[in-house]
Design a protein around this nucleic acid. Structure first.
Length: 428
RNA sequence: GUGGGUGUAGCUCAGCCGGUAGAGCGCCGCGUUGUGGUCGCGGAUGUCGCGGGUUCAAGUCCCGUCACUCACCCCA
């Protein structure tokens, strides 16, 4: 066993999966970038109070899953368990809420929750998120949801479902909450669930145990208790989603684990992921910014799990970002040749051609083996003969064909062949 | 936090009723003095997770522990 191991519950990506992870993160953010969302680089730790007030003290995330520590000045800091609260803080702190609205930002990076690790559930989890703050236009809700849908679709995913509902607002939710509580009072529930019913009755609805679900049949749903404004808003969101070609499943029992959600609320689940099936989720949050000391601006956003989206791709047999890491592999025979190829590789890279060289003195055979393993479709072989004759040998690895060309033309020849191959790849 | 399963070579795993360590893949070399993949031949690699116990003898049985893993809970 190695002397050191990565901390429990922290996934690492390298080799082919490293490339896949990067491709997934890229795919998740691309649709948002095409819709005017700007990138925000946010701190990985924040004032503990931000999450307690923003996310909600009664949530599991805050009450028992935070990595909290004191810095040397005695301040209580917490590794961020989610992204929205930090974005709200940034917007308020820098006065973005006083400028052009809505403020649209996207972010990506690690989040931390002290949970027991499981397939798709990690202590350090990676997310890509977007937030659109300062507008309650239902068309914006639809845009946000469609951007997530487009992200999944662009990866080639098909076996996922969008679950959608409305959680109402400060006007209609209290009445519903009472109705639900009085219903739950008449249901036989265990101690832990009863406690949850007192703190956050909505959360009881998404209990996964079949026997509990059976007893919850006939429970009142928020969507049936929406006030006129919320009902109109929800109807408009659905209409806009229809226009955008997004398909969804009405999920009246959908509940999210964070307290700040209001009105439009959604979750994406994947069919092949086992227990941790949620690959993304989000919703509107009307009171969040006010609760951390900002203006009373509404916002909507989502977080998509990068780890889980990669797992979903793999479960569907997709390989995001697959393909060779380099275009040209340089194989020198002897010191003179190596000096020239080091220079050539540098010039190729400057032209945007991915190039690598056989280092060390493994001999021609060994170097060709490395060339093969690199996956590069093109190899440049240079030895004393070529150096003397001012030529270079270029070999196509797929066919085995090779040709000798003048050294002065080698850069141009390689570049044009690499471009041809790129075009071929894209047309497939 | 609660419960189940699994820890043997770099990876995936076999190892019967306890008798002293194996396969495939990968890696290295040779067949080829300047050519990779395929093929053939050869080679290296282990604290059998860790600690204790039972036994003449433990990878194998027992206890503990750690790690991984699946599920609950929760969520991305």
């Amino acid at each position: 066993m190695a002397m050191f191991q990565a901390p429990k519950g922290v996934p690492e990506y390298f080799g082919a999966r490293g490339g896949s992870f990067l491709a997934v993160r890229e795919a998740l953010s691309r649709p948002a970038m095409l819709a005017g969302y700007g990138y925000a680089e946010l701190p990985v730790f924040e004032d503990t109070g931000l999450f307690v007030r923003g996310v909600g003290e009664s949530t599991d995330v805050v009450s028992k899953e935070m990595y909290t520590f004191e810095d040397r000045g005695g301040r209580s800091l917490t590794l961020r368990p989610e992204g929205t609260a930090g974005v709200m803080r940034l917007v308020v702190e820098h006065g973005l809420d006083r400028g052009q609205l809505p403020v649209k930002v996207w972010y990506a990076g690690p989040f931390f929750r002290a949970e027991r690790p499981q397939h798709g559930r990690y202590r350090q989890l990676q997310q890509v998120g977007i937030e659109a703050i300062g507008s309650d236009d239902p068309a914006l809700d639809a845009e946000v949801i469609a951007l997530a849908d487009e992200a999944f679709r662009s990866l080639g995913l098909t076996q996922y479902t969008l679950h959608l509902t409305s959680l109402g607002c400060a006007v209609c939710r209290p009445g519903y909450r009472e109705a639900l509580q009085s219903f739950l009072a008449g249901v036989d529930l265990d101690e832990a669930t009863r406690e949850r019913a007192a703190v956050n009755p909505l959360r009881v609805l998404d209990d996964k145990r079949p026997d509990v679900q059976a007893r919850l049949a006939g429970a009142p749903h928020m969507v049936d208790h929406l006030c006129a404004e919320c009902a109109a808003h929800y109807a408009a969101v659905r209409q806009a989603l229809g226009l955008l070609g997004v398909r969804w499943n009405e999920a009246p029992a959908l509940v999210r684990g964070l307290d700040y959600y209001t009105r439009t609320t959604f979750e994406f689940t994947h069919d092949l992921l086992g227990a941790q099936s949620g690959i993304g989720g989000g919703g509107r949050y009307d009171g969040l910014m006010e609760s951390i000391g900002g203006a009373a601006l509404s916002g909507i956003g989502w977080g998509i799990g990068t780890d889980r989206t990669l797992l979903a791709c793999e479960a569907e047999g997709l390989e995001p970002g697959a393909g060779p890491l380099i275009d040209v592999y340089c194989v020198p025979i002897g010191a003179d040749a190596k000096a020239r190829l080091v220079g050539l590789a540098g010039e190729l890279r400057a032209r945007g051609v991915r190039a690598d060289i056989a280092y060390g003195d493994r001999g021609l055979k060994g170097a060709m083996k490395s060339a093969d393993r690199s996956g590069a479709p093109l190899v440049v072989v240079l030895g004393d003969n070529e150096v003397q004759g001012r030529t270079a040998v270029i070999k196509e690895m797929t066919t085995g064909d090779q040709s000798t060309i003048p050294w002065d033309s080698v850069l141009d020849v390689i570049q044009s062949r690499v471009q041809e191959q790129a075009i071929e790849r894209n047309s497939r």
